[in-house]
């Protein structure tokens, strides 16, 4: 074993990359849950976004087109969930599971012709001046666009929820849909929009896995990141900034265990690969006594009685 082979600067830099997919997906789910809807289909929407984004990027030669296509694909798939839970008033837990099972099948069907292909490379930004700062430069300022988009999204979601009227309405719908309905807000419409935003975010997060993190297509490649995104929302007590924190924690664990694998530590690879999931469980346990933070109408079906 050679621990000195692990470069802390590279480690921190790749931590930011490893955190991005789960962060974007979790932010989408955060909005969905603040609107009072529990969508367990994040994994299914991510994997679908991963293959749609991959396919679009390969055919167009442009990663940007890939990300847009992934967002559209994720949002489209989430519409199925919206239809089930908001129109057909089906159980949200079951519908979310159905979405994940369906998405896994759909993605491997689409992905058949894409195994072993290399996607177009996304350029690193190398921000002038800033990227030359020793230590901080390589860690913070030499990433691709999507890493910064993820951080920007944290800020935007935070501003939206805290300072805009629409954000207030969304929260009202999530806390008490009966009252929001009585005030004349369109509960179903707001929730459908939130679900679609969540789907788009999950799609982009998935595309980040297939286009940047890995970058290639393999079946089931998101490997539970969508579920970790769901756990992250709980960890974050439904607050955007804490999603950022949690995503970096998760990214750190992932990168560290990969580095330890590469350094040839005496722990078998399989046990190291378990660690992100185990850490997620531990974090869930620590955070679970703060139940009160969850939106009051979360997971409840709304049916406006005439």
């Amino acid at each position: 074993m050679d621990l000195s082979a692990i470069n802390p600067i590279l480690l921190l830099a790749s931590l930011m990359v490893a955190a991005t997919a789960v962060m974007i997906a979790a932010l989408g789910e955060l909005i969905v849950e603040r609107a009072g809807v529990l969508n367990l289909g994040v994994e299914g929407m991510m994997i679908t976004g991963a293959i749609i984004g991959f396919a679009a990027a390969v055919h167009s030669g442009s990663p940007a087109v890939g990300f847009v296509a992934a967002a559209v694909g994720g949002a489209g798939l989430s519409l199925l969930f919206a239809l089930l839970t908001q129109v057909a008033l089906a159980n949200q837990v079951a519908s979310g599971l159905a979405l994940t099972l369906f998405g896994l099948g759909l993605s491997s069907l689409i992905g058949q012709g894409y195994v072993g292909i290399k996607p177009p490379v996304i350029p690193k930004l190398n921000i002038p001046l800033l990227s030359d700062i020793p230590v901080l430069g390589p860690i913070l300022f030499r990433h691709d666009m999507v890493v910064y988009f993820g951080i920007l999204l944290v800020v935007l979601v935070w501003l939206f929820l805290k300072y805009t009227r629409a954000g207030l309405v969304l929260r009202a719908v999530g806390e008490n849909h009966e009252a929001a309905h009585a005030l004349g807000y369109k509960v179903v419409r707001i929730r459908v929009l939130a679900i679609m935003f969540g789907g788009a975010c999950a799609g982009v997060g998935g595309a980040y896995v297939s286009l940047v993190r890995v970058p290639q297509w393999t079946e089931g490649m998101t490997a539970g990141v969508g579920w970790i995104a769901l756990a992250l929302v709980v960890f974050a007590s439904w607050k955007p900034w804490r999603v950022l924190l949690g995503a970096y924690l998760f990214g750190g664990v992932t990168v560290l265990q990969l580095n330890l694998q590469a350094a040839g530590i005496a722990i078998p690879v399989e046990y190291l690969s378990m660690s992100p999931y185990l850490i997620t469980i531990i974090v869930l346990v620590i955070m679970s006594n703060r139940r009160s933070a969850s939106p009051a109408s979360l997971g409840k079906t709304f049916h406006a009685a005439q």
């Binding site: 199925l80 239809l83 089930l84 057909a88 008033l89 089906a90 159980n91 079951a94 519908s95 599971l97 159905a98 979405l99 099972l101 369906f102 998405g103 896994l104 099948g105 759909l106 491997s108 069907l109 992905g111 058949q112 049916h303």
Partner: peptide, 26 residues
């Protein structure tokens, strides 16, 4: 026929079941 198509059909089954279930309760 790709195996993934069958997996998708299995997923669809749950979808349609949840959707038509609205008739049972409403």
């Amino acid at each position: 026929l790709p195996a993934a198509a069958i997996q998708m059909v299995q997923g669809m089954l749950l979808f349609f079941l949840l959707a038509v279930d609205v008739l049972t309760n409403y």
